[in-house]
């Protein structure tokens, strides 16, 4: 993947530095001010996304040693503080007894009143709109499950076993043709989209990058381990039903069985994953770490809130201008 195009002073400083061999001086203008609406801050979300990407696949021609360069870690830390503060505004704290974590997660999901992106895609979306949805989602799905895998070495006992059971399924049981990220490539190819990792990052607005930045933040900071598994639980618990609608929408638009397999597989898989995530993973972790119960709920609430922002963004865009973004074509 190539380095993205900067969107402001912070992302410009980061991207410029990464163009040089490490170490190289990196100074970023200090940021302060309100953090509400930070989910739509193009400069911050892209800069953070770029910092995080050094821990995943990196960029073409960029020195991989930037991953742990103190100057880049310092920039990331400062951006993360603002992003985390913004997430705490989006996802107000929920008090919960450790024993009640699975039922509290179920209540949270049942009360979720995010916009119905899935309903729109099932019944109304044009082919171009569906393509735009898939191009945006590719920023996450081409590395599906990777950010939650950061949790594996931090867990132990039954909670670790539960996360492994979910992740094994996400990675196709070790069979490349069943890996969820590969099934997503089939969706992209069926829609004539470029399935190169990171291809649509320059076309992805802040809120799309924020979806991934949320999980990377929780995954790469061990102090947010409870939030990471809560995020996964909310993700899995709100997946089966929308995925059925996405699959039906794609069938309505002419998608064949190969094209819709990613969605069809998630209907069945995530009905299992949600049980494992809520009860074995989060319930088990809360028994091991009672003090982390509210962190788990924070991660789940943050997941739903950022997803809702993403859904509102896309639906709003399609409402105001039904034409596709030419840059995603």
């Amino acid at each position: 993947m190539r380095l993205p195009h900067p969107r402001g002073p912070v992302s410009a400083a980061v991207i410029d530095a990464l163009g040089h061999p490490c170490p190289y001086p990196l100074a970023v203008p200090p940021a302060d001010g309100p953090v509400d609406g930070i989910v739509h801050d193009e400069d911050l979300q892209l800069a953070l996304w770029t910092c995080y990407e050094m821990h995943y696949r990196g960029f073409d021609g960029v020195d991989d040693d930037w991953e742990w360069a103190p100057s880049l870690i310092a920039v990331r830390g400062a951006l993360e503080e603002r992003w985390l503060a913004g997430l705490r505004l989006l996802a107000p704290p929920v008090e919960v007894e450790p024993d009640a974590v699975p039922s509290a997660l179920a209540e949270l999901v049942a009360a979720d009143d995010g916009p119905s992106l899935a309903g729109f895609l099932q019944r109304k979306a044009t082919l171009e709109q569906f393509r735009e949805f898939v191009a945006q989602r590719s920023v996450y799905h081409l590395k599906e499950a990777d950010p939650h895998s950061w949790g594996i070495p931090r867990l132990e006992g039954s909670a670790k076993a539960a996360l492994i059971e979910i992740q094994v399924d996400e990675y196709g049981g070790g069979r490349v043709e069943r890996m969820h990220s590969e099934l997503f490539r089939d969706v992209m190819r069926a829609l004539d989209l470029d399935d190169d990792y990171g291809h649509y990052v320059d076309q992805a607005p802040a809120v799309t990058l924020a979806v991934t930045n949320t999980i990377s933040l929780f995954g790469l900071r061990r102090s947010l381990g409870g939030a990471l598994i809560g995020h996964l639980a909310a993700f899995e618990m709100t997946s089966s039903l929308p995925n059925r609608r996405y699959g039906n929408g794609l069938r309505r638009l002419g998608g064949d069985a190969t094209a819709t397999r990613f969605y069809d597989e998630h209907v069945e898989a995530d009905a299992v994953h949600e049980q494992i995530a809520a009860h074995d993973l989060c319930g088990g972790y809360a028994r091991q770490h009672p003090e982390a119960a509210s962190d788990i709920l924070f991660g789940a609430t943050a997941c739903l809130a950022v997803e809702a922002e993403f859904g509102r963004y896309l639906l709003g865009r399609w409402e105001s201008s039904p034409e596709p973004l030419s840059r995603t074509a």
Binding site: A110, S239, S240, L241, R244, V267, E268, A271, V272, E274
Partner: peptide, 10 residues
């Protein structure tokens, strides 16, 4: 997709 669950109970 009986006998499997598809989340419709929610």
């Amino acid at each position: 997709i009986k006998p499997l669950c598809d989340g419709t109970h929610k």
